[in-house]
Amino acid sequence: MDAKQNDKEVSLYLGNLDPKVDETLLYELFVQFAPVKSIRLPKDKVLRRHQGYGFVEFFNVKDCEYVLNICSGLSLYDKVLRVKKLIGGQTETPELDEDIGPVVYVGNLDKLVDSGSISATFANFGTFRKPPQVVPGEKSNHAFIYYTDFESSDEAIKEMNGKIIMNRPIKMDYAYKKDSKEKHGDRTERLLYEKARENNFELEQLKKR
């Protein structure tokens, strides 16, 4: 077994990192559980800040597996960390955060509106990466639409916000990210999502809220 493989066996992937998280904070966190050899947060070349994921390397497999087992559900800045053991070539091409990509919120829907009617109405603007989701409410329904690109979601919001569906004016905007006060569609997310597509990531792995 070569040294490169050994490095992977003692390293963990950290996902869903808040922008405020840095190497020092992660070191101070994980050194409480086991001696830390290194911390790495790959940074975006344009924005010069980390891309929501990183890696922590330990000195032996036992410590690595121990930290993996006890860090399930751990949160930083109200965001639950995704901690996984590295496998294969994930060191250089890790999975992206699950909530990256175009997610559109549609509000004030009539109670009779279902996922089929939402699909029929909004399919003209682009391709869905997964079927729209309709969530029942007490007085009205709302829905989430998952497009494969931001051009489609931008156009749908521009053209359909305020339009009448079943005698109700609908409200459209980008949905809030999971466990966050930020909405989808910001500049950072667009850059990360486009980078993922250019690098031929499987879009099915970019699961959304």
Rank of each mutant, 00 (worst) to 15 (best):
T127N: 15
D114L: 12
P35S: 05
K8D: 11
I87G: 12
P132R: 10
R197G: 01
G88K: 12
L192Y: 02
H50W: 04
V21S: 07
L26C: 03
I87P: 01
R197H: 00
E57L: 11
P131R: 09
D44A: 05
T148I: 13
V113Y: 02
T127A: 15
Q32C: 05
K158V: 04
V21I: 15
D149T: 13
S152F: 03
R129N: 15
V134I: 05
F150Q: 09
I145N: 07
N108D: 12
V21R: 09
T127Y: 15
N200W: 04
Y105D: 02
F144E: 06
S75W: 01
G126S: 14
E151P: 04
H142V: 03
E155M: 15
N200M: 02
F128Y: 14
K130T: 12
D2F: 10
L206S: 04
Q32D: 06
S119N: 14
D2R: 05
E92P: 03
E182R: 02
E28Y: 12
E9R: 11
Q51K: 15
T121L: 12
L81S: 01
A3P: 09
L76M: 14
V113Q: 01
E151V: 15
D7G: 05
I170A: 06
G15K: 13
D22R: 08
E198Q: 10
L25V: 14
Y77W: 04
V135P: 01
N69V: 00
D97N: 11
K195W: 00
V67C: 01
L191C: 10
L86R: 07
R190N: 00
C64K: 06
L96N: 04
V113L: 03
L109K: 00
K84R: 15
E155K: 15
D186V: 10
L191N: 09
F144Q: 02
G126H: 14
T93D: 10
V56K: 09
L76W: 02
G73S: 00
A156R: 06
L74Y: 05
S153K: 02
K45G: 07
L192T: 03
D63R: 01
G15H: 13
D63C: 07
F33Y: 14
K45D: 13
A123G: 11
K158Q: 11
I87R: 15
D22I: 09
P42E: 02
I165G: 01
S117R: 09
K158G: 05
V61C: 03
K177N: 01
L192W: 08
I100E: 07
I87W: 13
D179Y: 08
I39P: 05
A123P: 07
